[in-house]
């Protein structure tokens, strides 16, 4: 008789652990496969919730890249006093060009400035009405690459101290505004990511909760025959991980699709500004981080819900 058979040896914990996780892995996948539409919808909702902050992140990063490339074409304009001669101006430009922190300094004489203005502004005829050339000589200073904002600022202060200089101007206010906006956007991405991360946990938690309610009797039976919490909990945690994984992959796909769709229009826009700038999507490591975030959120959403609900379900 079966009952008289000798007791069995349990495999070691590693073998038990591996076997149990493999079992739950296939069990949870099978469960998803039995209700593919419901699972796909849940993953889609999670995917959209994750794609929003990821998309914003990509947008902000692209904008700051563009801003940074503009900063490199930044110039300090030194308007010289009228009393400064052409020779002195050229010599001054050479002097400044040799200073540290300066990439290039070009002297633009009053005549050159006038000719340029006549050519580019479209007000050439109006200038003919003036007796004198109203434009001062200018030295255009390009700061060296990789200078910080503070360094550029101190260079500006230094140059404006020179006796020949009437006015030194760094037209960077708009750039500072852009950076301020970008910094707000970066914080906003963080906050939105936090909120939508919570939303993902709630979505997954709610899905798992419905699943738990549907399987309440099964859970009771399992507890009756001595299943520990970890055993009952495991399939639900796997479900959460699958939802998170699916959602993360979908979010990656959505962001990739959006960047692909925006690629041609951006290239066109950049071409209008004589730039070869191309929009940058999520890198491999960004994408993997997105998927990992999905998995972590899925797991923790499931864990919080299951732990909370299982304590309430006791066999009658």
């Amino acid at each position: 008789m079966a009952i008289a058979e000798a007791g069995l040896e349990r495999p070691n914990w590693l073998a038990r652990w591996t076997q149990e996780h493999l079992r739950v892995l296939f069990f949870s996948l099978g469960k998803l496969a039995r209700a593919p539409m419901a699972a796909a919808l849940t993953a889609l909702v999670i995917g959209i919730a994750l794609a929003l902050p990821a998309g914003l992140f990509v947008a902000v990063r692209n904008l700051s890249t563009v801003g940074y490339s503009w900063q490199e074409s930044l110039q300090i304009s030194l308007f010289l006093k009228d009393s400064v001669s052409d020779e002195r101006g050229k010599a001054l430009a050479r002097e400044i060009g040799a200073e540290t922190g300066v990439a290039r300094a070009t002297y633009i004489s009053r005549e050159q400035a006038l000719a340029e203005f006549r050519e580019l502004s479209g007000f050439g005829e109006a200038l003919d009405l003036l007796k004198d050339n109203p434009l001062p000589p200018v030295i255009a200073v390009t700061p060296a690459r990789g200078q910080t904002k503070a360094e550029v600022r101190s260079l500006l202060a230094r140059l404006s101290q020179r006796p020949e200089v009437d006015l030194a101007k760094l037209d960077q206010q708009w750039l500072e505004r852009l950076y301020a906006v970008l910094s707000i956007a970066e914080h906003a991405v963080g906050i939105i990511a936090l909120l939508l991360g919570l939303a993902v946990m709630v979505i997954i938690g709610n899905t798992i909760r419905l699943d738990i309610e549907a399987r309440r009797e099964e859970i009771e039976v399992m507890k009756l025959i001595g299943a520990p919490h970890s055993f009952v909990r495991r399939p639900f945690l796997y479900s959460g991980v699958w939802f998170g994984l699916g959602g993360g992959l979908l979010a990656w796909g959505l962001v990739a699709l959006a960047t692909h769709l925006l690629d041609a229009p951006t290239a066109q826009l950049a071409a209008l500004y004589d730039s070869t700038y191309r929009i940058a999507g999520l890198s491999l490591s960004d994408g993997l981080a997105l998927v990992a975030a999905g998995i972590v959120l899925g797991w923790s959403g499931a864990f919080a819900t299951v732990t909370h609900r299982l304590a309430q379900i006791e066999p009658r």
């Binding site: 069995l8 349990r10 652990w17 399992m222 001595g226 520990p228």
Partner: peptide
């Protein structure tokens, strides 16, 4: 199920279950 909860090896579970059903 009770054997799965305890983590017995697959082959042993099959044998035990068939013995119990028998």
């Amino acid at each position: 199920l009770p054997l799965v909860i305890r983590g017995y090896a697959h082959a042993d579970i099959g044998r035990r279950v068939r013995a119990a059903l028998d």
